[in-house]
Simulated scan of single mutants.
Amino acid sequence: MYEEITYEDLLQQKLDQIDADIDKREGSIVYNALAGNSVEAQLLYIALDSILNETFAETATRENLIKRAAERGLTPEPATRARLKGIFNIDVPIGSRFSLDDMNYEVIERISQGEFVLECETFGNEGNLYLGPLVPIDYIDGLTSAELTEVLIPGEDEEETEALRRRYFNSFNSQAFGGNRQDYKDKVNSLQGVGGVKVYRAWNGGGTVKLVVINSLFQKPSQTLIDTLQKTIDPIGEQGEGVGLAPMDHVVTVFGVDESTINIASNITYQDGWSWPEVEPYVLETIDSYFASLNETWAEQDALVVRISQIETRLLNIPGIIDIADTTLNGEQENIVLHPDAIPIRGVVNG
């Protein structure tokens, strides 16, 4: 707001107020005194500009945005720890610890013989990144194999500043109250491992509510995550009793998004010296990236649309490809509109 107020302008305004018969040349006593004062005045305007920006949620930095959001009862979603499935040749003790690369994990729950839930000791998304052989930190008699095989409940980083800012402004657009649609969205999205949710009323008769969720990696959630959410929101055996987050008389059932396999075939023209084996890894990575970007928008869309034009445009940016035509999705040269509760996953890709 005060960018146009410069040191030079402030100094000139002050000099203009001094009588003409007084020496105002650079280096004079008057000039030096007013120059120092003008520097202080400019710093004051800079501080005022900063204060003004910090006053409004649209321009506030994280520290003051958190204070502003607190007035709406909102706080940044905290970082959480990933929970993963471990497979062992024996039952290992609860509390035993293992390492994989730079990560350490603690056994917290038994699933079945030789299968356990491990919690990463590091907060955030980093705990979702590693699967493979585990090394015990302390000796366990009889242990010959240990492996992380699956992310059950993804760990999440602390909510980013811009995500908090969007949530703050969204809180004015739709009021959450006592089991209305926004109330369900706010409560479910705040739970660990949830990346989005769709809410359906009376899906199985009056008083029933269907929640379809995608995990925070924007993938199909594990059954462990579904069961955890069900228990938190409306526990089986006590549904409709208001024991969980759901209001009384709301019978809530939690489902995960479905996966729709998309097989892709294209007629690709290659640069000299290139062929399918050379470009295939880049093609698969590009398609996965496109599907991931679609999945991130799933909760806000009526239904996702996989578009041939988007695939071809992205593939044309891959080194070694100079043209692409006749692309088909599941054998047809047309876009695919998915079921509202489905996300795309890559199937067979031929070039």
Score class of each variant (00 low, 15 high):
301 Q>W: 00
350 N>F: 11
301 Q>Y: 03
50 S>N: 04
217 L>Y: 08
43 L>Y: 10
267 N>S: 15
195 G>N: 01
56 F>Y: 09
229 L>H: 01
279 V>G: 00
329 L>Q: 07
145 S>R: 08
97 R>I: 11
274 W>E: 05
154 P>T: 02
315 L>T: 12
292 A>V: 10
294 L>P: 15
6 T>V: 03
330 N>V: 03
69 A>P: 06
302 D>N: 13
30 V>G: 15
339 H>S: 13
27 G>P: 02
293 S>H: 04
231 K>H: 14
293 S>G: 02
322 I>N: 03
189 N>L: 07
280 E>N: 11
51 I>D: 15
46 I>E: 11
304 L>K: 01
275 S>L: 11
199 V>N: 01
164 L>C: 03
208 T>V: 01
137 I>C: 02
12 Q>R: 04
295 N>M: 08
190 S>V: 09
182 Q>E: 15
222 S>D: 06
96 S>H: 04
325 A>F: 10
129 L>S: 14
11 L>R: 02
47 A>Y: 07
296 E>F: 07
238 E>F: 11
235 P>M: 07
77 E>H: 13
307 R>T: 10
261 T>I: 12
216 S>A: 04
148 L>Y: 01
212 V>K: 05
44 L>T: 15
34 L>A: 05
98 F>G: 00
161 T>I: 07
260 S>P: 11
182 Q>T: 14
196 G>W: 00
249 D>H: 11
46 I>F: 09
312 E>D: 10
229 L>E: 00
320 G>I: 06
346 R>E: 06
312 E>A: 06
41 A>P: 04
218 F>T: 14
226 I>C: 02
42 Q>N: 15
340 P>M: 03
289 S>I: 12
103 M>Y: 11
183 D>P: 04
75 T>E: 12
16 D>S: 13
109 E>G: 07
201 R>Y: 12
232 T>M: 12
243 V>P: 05
139 Y>I: 08
36 G>I: 09
248 M>C: 14
36 G>Q: 10
182 Q>D: 06
93 P>A: 04
90 I>E: 06
201 R>P: 12
102 D>R: 06
224 T>Q: 12
238 E>Y: 15
102 D>L: 14
98 F>Y: 13
337 V>L: 10
56 F>E: 09
37 N>L: 14
331 G>N: 07
